[in-house]
Design a protein around this nucleic acid. Structure first.
Lengths: 319, 319
DNA sequence: TGATGTATGTCAAGCGGTTGACATATTTTG
DNA sequence: CAAAATATGTCAACCGCTTGACATACATCA
């Protein structure tokens, strides 16, 4: 591999000059630039990012820590992050903490040792906060500390919209299934709306294990057995909603005729289900874009900020 | 941030010694090791991976280039790769070429400039082959050149199994929907099996655009309109199968009573559909593990190798 | 004319590790 | 007891790029 020295030699200048033309700083004559460029071309020179990073004490790597890579929500997050990152010349280093606080801590150390430009945290453990000082970090759909900027969607509003929608579709007996990932705000929005309308409702919480395996079948079956009158289900994620639909099918309940189902997230899965799932759309693209901006403009960002982006209903065929 | 010098100073030894204890090479007395470890502890020292990489001319980064981050198949691939990589102390750099040969080439250059330990290629453009020389590269479910080792699943066998299964379930009019991603071998396996059994069948190919948007609705609708006698569909990916099921629902066809549907990949989506999808299971974990081994043991690997891993049927409720 | 500013480059010290070559004990061995 | 083996460390040159400090050489200005 050709190095900057080879280029300098070939172009008849010093490495400083070569570096200058690469980074376009200082005064350079067109002639010099030309010479250097030709030498680079001739040698098929590609500057080492590693050396550059060492000299600059910073890389163009962006770390993302997610609690799972199997949940479609995080897949879409990674997709969006990668898109925006690559536009800015940043590269995504993907870390799967697997809902394990220790793994998360290890990943944070690793990212620091790799001098990443910033970290986007989608995990929940608060105990890593102190190791995050002096490092551009933003949490996505999470809020772990007032000193770490957070980007979230309007979860409470999402819960409200979901409840209102089910009610407007004529449901009388609502239930919300709250999976591990989602925030308490969704529950609150749902609960408050139901209370305001004094409609019959309840909320069931999935266990961590169920979340981990993304398998809520037992929970849902129990639910329908215990409360056969249910005619509207708000699932706190599309994955849960998918399983609600499955189980309705199995139990001979028609969706949406007998039971209406609404999800949350609006991941691709939602449109692939039969019937296609009505759901609360999370602005994943915008969330991710904002998160990356926060990292990139770290100096200007208000460290205590909480950015909340609006959600909206996407009605399909399940309600 | 403390550096190796600070540690050396504090421990009363030279940087060489510190480096030695970090890398556990040469003779070290327990006493020295202890001193050094204490100094590290006291300074909360974390060696810079960047500096280390520069000195060793290699990083512990592993590049993955996929054609899409929205397709669930690649999500599962990334999940599996991350798992195996992290076990070996490797980090995943995720690149989304978006089925764009130029982007792919740019990513390859970027990965080279970042001195990655290796690249796992899930994309198809063959024109990048020459820029891949002298670099540990393996293609996953792809084969772009005899000189680049490939890890694939037994696609032809998958096609056979799918066809045989549909036939064994009593289907008389088969169709295969071939999406952009999948290999020609699947078609061959399917076709040959049908021919051997002299059963009525045909194959339709999706356009690149449809693949890109993961939206095959038009294609499938046309298919059912043109050939109403279809009673068995083999979709070359679970995503396509999901849409087949949707459209059957909409057209009032029952799955599996009227039409049996089988997919390929066995991504998580398959078990979430209603009815749950029968599909050909790809051993993603094994494929990825093997791909990473190929990179890690590059010196020992046969560059011309093609590793083909077996697939098997997972029968659920759609057939 | 001398000060000032602009244009074009060079020097060399980092950045934070790694490592081959050496030096100096301390043991072991024949 | 001298040679060989083992143990414990140090020196300093690299890895490839960045950058502040410093030359020069002209033009321009007052």
């Amino acid at each position: 591999m050709a190095t900057i020295k080879d280029v300098a030699l070939k172009a008849g200048v010093t490495v400083t000059t070569v570096s200058r033309v690469m980074n376009n700083r200082g005064y350079l004559s067109e002639k010099t630039k030309e010479k250097v460029h030709q030498a680079m071309e001739a040698l098929d020179y590609h500057p080492s990012e590693v050396a550059r990073s060492l000299a600059q004490k910073q890389t163009t790597l962006l770390g993302v820590i997610v609690p799972s890579l199997l949940h479609p929500y995080y897949n879409e997050v990674i997709n969006a992050l990668e898109n925006h990152a690559s536009l800015l010349g940043l590269k995504l280093l993907v870390c799967n903490a697997q809902r394990n606080a220790q793994k998360e801590a290890e990943y944070i150390d690793m990212l620091k040792a790799n001098k990443v430009a910033g970290i986007i945290l989608c995990t929940q453990s608060r105990n890593s906060v102190r190791s995050l000082i002096n490092l551009p970090v933003v949490t996505l759909e999470r809020s772990i500390s007032p000193s770490v900027p957070a980007v979230l969607c309007d979860n409470e509003m999402g819960g409200r919209i979901a409840a209102e929608h089910l009610l407007s579709r004529g449901c009388k007996n609502l239930v919300m299934i709250q999976g591990g990932r989602s925030s308490e705000e969704r529950v609150q929005g749902f609960t408050r709306t139901c209370e305001e309308d004094s409609v019959s409702f309840h909320v069931v919480h999935a266990s961590k294990r169920q979340f981990h395996q993304l398998d809520y079948a037992d929970l849902i079956n129990t639910l329908f057995t215990d409360s056969p009158a249910i005619d509207g289900v708000f699932a706190s994620s599309d994955v849960i909603a998918a399983q609600v639909i499955q189980i309705c099918h199995k139990r001979g309940l028609c969706v949406p005729e007998d039971v209406k189902v609404i999800g949350f997230d609006d991941v691709d899965l939602a449109r692939l289900l039969s019937p296609a799932l009505s759901t609360i759309h999370q602005p994943i693209e915008e969330l991710c874009a904002h998160a990356i901006q926060t990292i990139v403009r770290w100096e200007d960002t208000e460290k205590q900020s909480r950015t909340i982006l609006p959600v909206h209903l996407v009605q399909r065929s399940s309600t």
